[in-house]
């Protein structure tokens, strides 16, 4: 079984933008190793000529005229935002 290491935890946590302590990395390494082993069961299934199933139903694009609808109120939306100013969401300086 593939071992999922503490370094692996930190590597993938970085992609997922989750800060991970050393202690958590140890815990997650163990439990994700189990999951990786669980997923290994799929290797024995013969799938050479099988198409992947992306969705349970056959779907088609749904198009409509480009006219605004279901318009939400800006003030109401900003009520959920911790930091905002002059109708805009504030983020730290990124430049």
């Amino acid at each position: 079984m593939t071992k999922f290491t503490e370094e692996d935890v930190k590597y993938f946590a970085n992609f997922a933008r989750i800060a991970i302590s050393d202690e958590e990395a140890t815990t997650f390494a163990d439990i994700i190793s189990d999951l990786v082993g669980f997923g290994d069961a799929l290797k024995e299934v013969e799938t050479d000529h099988i198409e992947p199933m992306t969705h349970p139903l056959q779907l088609f694009n749904v198009l409509r005229e480009d006219v605004p609808q279901d318009i939400l109120d800006r003030e109401e939306m900003l009520a959920s935002v911790e930091e905002h100013e002059a109708g805009m969401i504030k983020v730290p300086n990124i430049l």
């Binding site: 997923g39 799929l42 799938t47 099988i50 992947p52 199933m53 992306t54």
Partner: peptide
């Protein structure tokens, strides 16, 4: 390929 796409292929078989 080995995990996600593989799982989607086995999903086809289950369906």
């Amino acid at each position: 390929e080995d995990l996600y796409v593989k799982a989607m292929k086995v999903r086809t078989l289950i369906a």
